[in-house]
């Protein structure tokens, strides 16, 4: 059992059984639930892989008579590798943002300490990299549509756009969350006692990144 008095000293608010903030426990439960959500989407994509009766296909050329004309494989792995890198870098920026909030009270002397310790900068960077990833996704979706793949074309289109679209929606929600935190930071400054609200956003953000690693591996890399 956690000592309630110690918990008060540590966190400055109502003691809890575990000593953790309620929001932190809740976000972990939420992430557990989200795992099942993405597991269902990814499984459906994998079950439907290779079952489309018409092209375009993810990794294979579709030639007549299956398709009216020859259709190239649709997935552009080099471009998506870049966007994957961008998203992974956003996780690094997120880590720096949380560290900056946790250490907001410490004095900063050198320029590098000031840069590393700027929560505003790193929250902004995380949101910016997230938005860049979304830009890549918008570009990818548009070019797929031009090449003849929509959400209605075949099973691949339906399951691909729904899976990556759900992920994109999660990134969008994350960007909105980060921008909200940035607005709070600009208005009143985030202090170490606010670390938990950045911490839960960070947990969500890293989770969304990890999901992307699974999607990138299973959908793009494995033939």
């Amino acid at each position: 059992m956690a000592n309630p008095a110690a918990a008060i000293e540590h966190h400055g608010h109502t003691p809890t059984t575990t000593g953790l903030d309620h929001r932190k426990v809740a976000i972990w439960a939420f992430i557990g639930s989200e795992c099942m959500l993405f597991a269902s989407l990814i499984s459906t994509y994998l079950i439907y892989k290779g079952r489309s009766v018409t092209g375009p296909f993810p990794h294979e050329v579709c030639s007549p008579p299956v398709c009216d004309h020859v259709m190239k494989p649709i997935l552009n792995i080099p471009v998506t590798s870049v966007s994957t890198f961008v998203l992974l870098m956003s996780s690094l920026a997120m880590v720096l943002a949380l560290a900056a909030v946790e250490n907001a009270d410490k004095p900063k002397h050198s320029l590098s300490e000031k840069i590393l310790g700027s929560s505003k900068l790193w929250l902004f960077m995380t949101a910016l990299l997230g938005t860049t990833f979304l830009g890549f996704q918008a570009f990818e979706f548009t070019s797929f549509v031009h090449e003849g793949l929509t959400i209605r074309t075949n099973l691949f289109g339906s399951s691909f756009f729904t899976l990556t679209g759900f992920h994109g929606a999660h990134v969008t929600a994350g960007v909105l969350w980060l921008v909200t935190l940035l607005a709070i930071d600009i208005r009143r400054g985030l202090k170490p006692k606010d670390a938990v609200i950045v911490d839960i956003a960070a947990l969500y953000w890293h989770f969304v990144d990890v999901v992307w690693i699974a999607i990138f591996t299973l959908v793009y890399l494995i033939h």
């Binding site: 439960a29 939420f30 557990g32 639930s33 989200e34 099942m36 959500l37 269902s40 989407l41 459906t44 959400i151 209605r152 075949n154 099973l155 289109g157 339906s158 399951s159 729904t162």
Partner: peptide
């Protein structure tokens, strides 16, 4: 929390099939 997301996705597929013409 572990069972509901699965029906959520099954329903999303059905919703998309009905409203947006997907082929799940």
């Amino acid at each position: 929390i572990l069972a509901f997301p699965v029906i959520t996705i099954a329903l999303v597929f059905l919703q998309f099939d009905r409203f947006f013409g997907t082929q799940f």
